[in-house]
Design a protein around this nucleic acid. Structure first.
Lengths: 225, 225
DNA sequence: TTCAAGATGTTGGAATTCCAACATCGCTGT
DNA sequence: ACAGCGATGTTGGAATTCCAACATCTTGAA
């Protein structure tokens, strides 16, 4: 554990816990390090979850099986991200599976331990704050993508995504964090069709783009029409 | 406030707080009742959020405007649900707007107040537990829909949704909580096209359905082929 | 500078979905 | 039983998207 104290203390979750309090806190949380080799299954769907995992190193594939046994990718979880946080808090059974995509390390800990009524140290409160922030952050992130996918056409998905990017950068001109392939995957559409739609949008005067740089155009401000 | 104490105490959030502690707790949270008439805008995008809202009565439309000023519906929030919980916790600015769809009542309160390091009563811990559970529950709900929308075809969206319904009911035969119109809206596809796709799936031996009742069929167990 | 590989744009036919219009079904009230 | 209305299924043409194949552009390495 001590080998990873620094890494743990760098995570968003534990960053604000005073360094001297960290080790006793981890103790209180009944925490435990686990190591996974590439390809190793870390969590299987159907198990009741008690602990939350904090990924200290590595990457995990989060996926599910449908009724007919087909596998579907849900998310890719990287270092610093949490794992099973929702099920641990709500005391529910996961429907997801998690597999290490490379050599990885997870810190498992019992977040409910910190909510015990009789234990109320400063560090506990700090951790709870950080943990709640993580839950809220994830919620907002899911809402964001959901509102992009909740459209009937590629065009509308693109406009939804780009609108929010403009808002996020507080400018009508910005760089997006995806290349075309990643953007298509994010929007769940086919890459070349999306490319074509971007060209159509540019021709229609909605935007200008080159690589991952975009400039959105208001109808009245369009350079040409 | 006293008129609504019972309603507040019935909510998932405050249910577990001892009845005698409720009023002082609400006081501590700097809480406040607000009344909205049908059509009244409750929250406008762009404001930094401090308080969380608990809907005591009524319904709110949660929506956003895109870069070109077009309005898009995001969610419908009903009695007992929270409002701005994510932005309040993470201290971020909302990009959403909220409008009362009927005569409504919201209890606004400062959830961060409860995380103050010097205040650690039993009721606080209980509230924090409930609040975190709500965040986690919402997260799981968003993940669920996201994985349904994250497909390229109506067929796959349907199979994804139905798979999880089967899992939820722990049976290959179940009733879904939607009629066709609602299901189409949930999956962001066109109703009649979805209906046609359901017929095709039935013909292909994936399922049997009548109204909101479904039975999923494994290839090897299909009654015919 | 040149080359190779990856990223992006374009194209055409197949497949899917949208959309409107209409048929049928099923439930409810009379 | 019957009328009426909303829910559901079906259909055909228009529009969109998928998909594969290929052209062009960019970037990094040699």
């Amino acid at each position: 554990m001590t080998d990873y104290l620094k890494t743990i203390h760098k995570s968003k979750l534990f960053r604000k816990v005073p360094e001297t309090d960290l080790e006793p806190l981890l103790e209180q949380l009944d925490s435990q390090l686990k190591f996974y080799r590439a390809g190793q299954v870390a969590v299987t769907a159907g198990r009741r979850v008690r602990r939350v995992g904090l990924i200290l190193e590595g990457t995990f594939n989060m996926y599910e099986y449908d009724f007919w046994g087909r596998e579907h990718h849900i998310d890719t979880l990287k270092s610093g991200m949490l794992l099973l946080e929702n099920n641990a808090v709500s005391g529910t059974v996961t429907i997801h599976n998690y597999t290490a995509m490379e050599s990885s390390v997870i810190l498992w800990f019992n977040i409910r331990e910190i909510l015990r009524l009789d234990e109320t140290h400063t560090s506990n409160t700090i951790l709870i704050q950080s943990f709640m922030k993580e839950l809220a952050r994830k919620n907002l992130q899911l809402y964001t993508r959901l509102s992009d996918l909740d459209r009937m056409s590629t065009k509308e998905k693109l406009l939804s995504f780009l609108s929010k990017e403009a808002l996020r950068h507080n400018s009508d001109e910005f760089d997006i964090p995806f290349d075309r392939k990643q953007l298509a995957e994010y929007l769940s559409v086919e890459r070349s069709a999306m490319s074509a739609e971007l060209s159509a949008l540019a021709k229609a005067g909605y935007l200008e783009t080159r690589r991952n740089h975009f400039k959105l155009l208001k109808p009245s401000l369009r350079t040409e029409d």
